[in-house]
Every structure is written in structure tokens, then in C-alpha cells.
Design a protein around this nucleic acid. Sequence first.
DNA 1: GGATGGTATGTAACCGGTATCCTACACTTG
DNA 2: CAAGTGTAGGATACCGGTTACATACCATCC
Lengths: 336, 336
Amino acid sequence: MSATIRDVAKLAGVSVASVSRVLNSKGYISTETKDKVEEAIKLLKYEPNQVARSLTVKKTKTIALFVPDITNPFFSTLAKGVEEQANSKGFTLILCNYDESGGEKNSHIDLIKQKYVDGIIFAAGKLNPRDAVKIKHSKIPLVALDRIPDMETECVIFVDNYKGAKMAVEHLLDMGCKKIGHIYGPQEISTARDRLLAYEDVMRDSPLYSPSLMTSGDFTIESGIEATKTLLERHPDLDGIFAGNDMMAIGALKALHRRGIKVPEQIAVCGFDGISLTEVTNPELTTVAQPTYEIGKLAAESLIKFISDLYFNEKIIKLDASLVIRESTKKIGVKL
Amino acid sequence: MSATIRDVAKLAGVSVASVSRVLNSKGYISTETKDKVEEAIKLLKYEPNQVARSLTVKKTKTIALFVPDITNPFFSTLAKGVEEQANSKGFTLILCNYDESGGEKNSHIDLIKQKYVDGIIFAAGKLNPRDAVKIKHSKIPLVALDRIPDMETECVIFVDNYKGAKMAVEHLLDMGCKKIGHIYGPQEISTARDRLLAYEDVMRDSPLYSPSLMTSGDFTIESGIEATKTLLERHPDLDGIFAGNDMMAIGALKALHRRGIKVPEQIAVCGFDGISLTEVTNPELTTVAQPTYEIGKLAAESLIKFISDLYFNEKIIKLDASLVIRESTKKIGVKL
DNA sequence: GGATGGTATGTAACCGGTATCCTACACTTG
DNA sequence: CAAGTGTAGGATACCGGTTACATACCATCC
């Protein structure tokens, strides 16, 4: 169908090796042959076959992104960052909606393993052990989010969750909150642990501190609603909620609204992540924003650099989150 | 590094052809050799190299999804449907965040063209002419959303936007609204046109109908806010808004809230799309929900079927949208 | 008993690139 | 002038599969 390198070689009256040299600007080539080859390429509308190329070089200019749920705005923002960076470097992105439970369905890892994917960005919280072994065994370079690097071909990017969470709780205190509850996420996930830890460290000294001010959620809106109900039952005099992520904070907002509790007047609410949803709630939600898009971009950039040069400039990259103050914590006339 | 088909053949004491036959359950094979081969495969932990395979069969078990913005919940939901369906069929998904403006950056189409991508799902609104030609020329099977099929290798899936919009406007009338404004989306996009058309058809007979009840937006929250301001200036007695999509409806909600106008008591608001955001607004938003996830699933299913059998069961698939009634239109004590 | 046909398997060309190796020429340079 | 070096380009093995073709055996059938 479409032209091959041999067609080009024939038309230009040179060998395939010379065409290849022109294509890759590699090796010695006279300007004369170079021109002839380029002429032939144009004439035949030749485009090199990437698959054939990949077979020998064992690279495909393709990276894979693993996310737990692309529907979650945090991950779609991340994906956008990754995709745009990858594209700008001539890479193609494979999207894997990774459900750690695995089950009997096709494992994404099996599917991509023999496709010579150049690298993986792993943004899903948990990795099931079977898949972890597969990845490690495959030696595919990896950039992970929020975990400890344990192979050579691995780089980790993470946001300082502890510091971010600390800012959030301190902000609530600044706004005059005394009795602040925390809805924490699944403790298998390190980010959730760090946020809880920061909350405890800040609050421990408070005279009103109590373990019953902390309750669990699973990062969904629904769990935020439930957790808020629980907190209100335990502490009717609650005046602040720090949720482990934005989705649960939105749940809190919903639960409070249903009970007719005014935010922020009666209870201030703060989330974590900085997803775009926080701008559409009413009241708009104060949150600790992660530079999500940038994380994606940076992850792709680091990975591609590794793929090209085979080393990571930095194995651990730490970023800061920033507090975005909105209506949900703006108590006017803070009483001291 | 890892075992090849020749290693397996050698260990099993057969030819590579026989191994290939076992691998693809194709051609005659005695149970005896089959067993030997399978034994060798297991022993060597052999996994066929997909790239080498692709080179001859010219297929990669890969499909590409083009979306204008993965960050938009509508498209991420779609993507999830596509991804899960593709994965279940052993296919891998390439995500292309397609910005029709193109610019000078790498064209996704160029990037995937020579990678033997088996098919494309095109969900981005506009396709720039240069890329359109490229796709058509490449003969890659395509499933498109909301457009007219114009090649053999094309199938189109679309939701009956007209009917859906009609339901929305009629619902607003049912709720007692008399003066209903419409914020329409970019008219180059057919879905936006159909929704506007339905609005006009339903409202034309109303005594209060006026072209000034229609104003434009660009499908973003911000434009929804602006459009709502415009409508309110023109018609202070407005009592209903039908927005061309959910994002603009959310903008409307915001604008109304800022002016202290109560929804739905004073003005009822209805969106279109059924994105998950509509459940987090306050009040929750009535919307015409598209079966977004299912569309994605169906698109992938049709495409993969075409790739396998080389024909589409149906070239045009029409789906229905459904009205999801929530707080934003629940006028109690409808006056007649 | 030779022709026909289904079953089983091996050989090698092929897909379309890359890369190694080799030849060849034109220069320095000691 | 022989040796060394930089430049140019051809021939071809190779990557790891698939598949067309050839071969061979064993039934069956007229």
C-alpha cells in the first residue's frame, strides 16, 4: 500500500541504509544523496513505519498512565498534563483505568508488556502484588506518585501532604474554629495517612481535642455525607470540618445543607486536592490545591527524559500544595 | 532477553510454524505437539511479542480516542466507557486530547498513523480540515459522535438532542414557567444547533416568545454566568432557563445565586448532558442526561466489531437522552 | 493400485525498518 | 610512500513474529 524505505531507496537510486541515515540524521551522508532521498520521500509521501522501527529499536514512543478512575477530576486533570507533555515530545499516551482488585479481566500490564511501552506513570493508589511483580520484572521505567521508589528504574513525585494538611487545619483555627473534625481517607493510602497525621499534630494540643473528632471515609461524596452525619451526632457543637479530600468535603457540604447548617457561619469546611468541582459548589469550597496538572506534566517530562537518557535527574520530587481560601471557610466577624 | 518463538520451537523440538499454530489455534496441530509446545511455553515463560506480530498482521489491538478535553466530566465518563470496553476485549486505548486548532505541535494523527492503530473514536466537536483529510486518507476505521458518516469505514453514534431538549423545555413549562430563556452553545456544533432548534420549536407558540430570550455561550461555566446576566437584563421577569449544557447551567446557577435569586422558586434551571457535577451543585441540577458511559462502551464495541469483521452492524446508532428531574426545577405549588 | 483429500509439520520468505560490517576514496602525516 | 583517518555508501543479517508453500503420511474410493 504505502511506500516503504525500499521504494524510497530505489527511487532515489541509493541503498536503504542511506535512506535510513537520512531519516535518522545518523552517520555520514553527502548533501547530494541527502537531497535525492528527501526528494524521493516527498514524491512518494513516504512515512516511516513505526511498528517496524520499534521491532528493532525496542522503543515505541509510547507511555502508559495508570489511574484508578479517570472520571475523578483529579485524575483527569493529571491525565491532561501527562498527555499534553507527552504529545509535545512526540509520545503517545495509553490510558489504563486501573482497578487494583484485578479480578479475572485482562491485566493492563499483560496487554502493554509485549507492546514495548517505553514507560509507565503510576497514579493509582494501590497496586496489587501480582501486578507489582510483573512491572518490576518487566523493567519498564516507572514514575510513581506518592510511594517510595524501590527499583532503579523508578522516580517518585509527591506533594507534601503533611504540610498542606497542616496549613488547612491552621487556617480553620485562624478563622476561629475551635472544634474541628476530620474525615480521613483510606489509611492504606499514604496521602490519606499524612493528612490525618498533620491534623492530629496540629490539634493534639487543643483543649477540645478528642479521637472522636476523627472519622473515616473512602474519598467519595457519599462517604463524606455519612462521615459528617457521624461527626454531628458525636459533636453537635462542631464548628469546622477538614475533609481528607475534596469529594468528601463536598459530601460534608451536602450533609450540612440538608440539616440546615450554614457554611461557613456555623461550620467551616475545607477540602484537599483543588479539583475544579470546588469552584462550583455553593458555597465555593476552600481547599488545599495540589498542582495537579503540573504533576502530570512533570511526571511525563521526567519519564521521557529517563527513557531518552536512561537516568533520572531526581529520583524524588517533592512539590508543595497551596491553600486556596474560598467562601466555605470565610467566617466574618471572627470571635476571639 | 525474554524468550522468542524460536526458543520455544527448539525446546519443544518442533518448527516455529507449529508453535505459531498453537499460539493462534489456527491450522492443523496434533494434540501431541500441542502439548509439547504448551509445555515449552510454560517453561520459558514465553509471551509473544506484539510488535513483531503487528508488523505482519498490520494490527495492534489498539484504538485511539479523540476528545477535546479529558478534564470535562462528560468526556472523562465517555473515556471510561471506551477504556473498559476496549480492555475487556484485549484492546489498549490511546488517549488524544484533541485541540482542533492544531497549531504547530505534533498532530496526534501523524503520531498514530504509522503505529498501526486499528481504529479511532472521534468525540471531539470539530475536526480541522487538514486532519480530516489525513484520517480519511489513512483509511483507519472510525466511530464518530454527532456527525454525518461520509466514509465507508465510519459509524456514527448520536443522542437525539432535539428530543432531549424538547423534553427539557416542556418540563419547564410543566413546572409553570412562562418566560424561559435559552443559553445556546456554539452553532458550529450540531448538538448545540439541535438543542436550540428544539427550544424554538416548543416556545414559538408561546405568547411570551421572543428572540431576545436566546443568548449564546461557549459551553463553559464562565459563559453561562455572562449569558445569564444578559438574559436578566433583557428580561427581569424571567422564570426559567434552559442551558445548552450542564456547565453553562452551573454558570447560570452561580449568577442567580450572586444576585440573590432563588432557584427554583423564582427561576427554574435545566441543563443538558447529565454530568456528575449536576449532583454536587446546590440546588442539585435538573438535566437531560445522556447515557455517556454507555455511548463510550457502545462506540468501542462497534469499532472493535468492525475491526474484527470489517463491517458495522449499524452505521448510525441513535440513542435517547432522559430527563433527570432534581431540585433546580422543582417549583412547589405550581400556579396555573 | 493409483488418484484424491484430509491431517500434520517443516522450510523459508516476508513484514519494514535498523545496524553492523565492509569497501572505497580522499586526505593528511611521519 | 605506506599507514592512518575521516567521509560516503552499499550489502545484508537481524528484530520476532506470520504464512505461503512444499512435503509426507494415511485413509478412502473407484
